[in-house]
Write a protein that binds this DNA or RNA. Sequence first.
DNA 1: TATTTAAATGCAACTTAGTTGCAAATATAA
DNA 2: TTATATTTGCAACTAAGTTGCATTTAAATA
Lengths: 141, 141
Amino acid sequence: MDNMKLIGDLLHSHGLKKTPIRTEVLELFMDHDFALSASDIVAKMTAGHDRVTIYRALSSFEEHGILHRASEDGQGTKYALCGHKCPDEQHTDKHAHFVCDECHQTYCLEDVQVPEVEVSSEFTVERTSFVLGGICRQCQQ
Amino acid sequence: MDNMKLIGDLLHSHGLKKTPIRTEVLELFMDHDFALSASDIVAKMTAGHDRVTIYRALSSFEEHGILHRASEDGQGTKYALCGHKCPDEQHTDKHAHFVCDECHQTYCLEDVQVPEVEVSSEFTVERTSFVLGGICRQCQQ
DNA sequence: TATTTAAATGCAACTTAGTTGCAAATATAA
DNA sequence: TTATATTTGCAACTAAGTTGCATTTAAATA
Ligand SMILES: [Zn+2]
Ligand SMILES: [Zn+2]
Ligand SMILES: [Zn+2]
Ligand SMILES: [Zn+2]
């Protein structure tokens, strides 16, 4: 598990300082296969770090393409690394996401491409979000 | 413009009492071709009605299939009648929506069907939301 | 028309997500 | 080791949305 090395490189390659908080946040993302919100992270962080710092880390990671928005239901924005344990390129919004109505977890559906559609020339499309909702396997049994 | 008749029938057919506030809310939806949030409505309503009442009207209309959720960006949930001036059936989530990054207005793209996709059997899909973002014609000039 | 009652409204208070300004702390580079 | 830009913490704020409860009102019916 040399996530540490990975994280160091990732932060450095984006000109971001490697701080304990950022490191821990990225570790959390690598240790989960579902998306995390700011408050999820605050709850999972060891020490009692300030919410604001977490919000700023998430914004910064999003701006640098380290994280992408996976969903934004009323309970807050959830973020994810693009591929689970692949903190690399293509953190795009080109795949769909799934939100479970039961456990409220959000998953990246990396093998479900967001479809291309024809839209009236009245609109210039620059972003796309395709979010499916329902029940995940754990919540079904 | 016998929207009044339409609104009366609509409310009555759902067993909802016809009140001045609900009437005015539905008129607002009929008079706009973009989706409206609770605070949009509060701002456009004549008298100074309570926010809570508007939230409750919107929830009630959503439960009865009179309105559907068009988008929920960080700035709040926007609702729309299914067809502009067609307060009837099929207030489904089967069409896409467009959110303008400039004016922050949300439009129903009633001719853009939400695509059907194959999803891993790990997930049981019950809802779908397909939201496009970009710039609308007015904001492009 | 007058009475009754369930439904709708208003108000106050609360929760939660997210933001801003500023001072103090700290990661890195020289 | 020092200097500096970046990051963090704190306090305070905004905005969306919710809840409980008392009051009002639409509409059914007597
Ligand atoms: Zn679940
Ligand atoms: Zn994703
Ligand atoms: Zn626009
Ligand atoms: Zn719509």
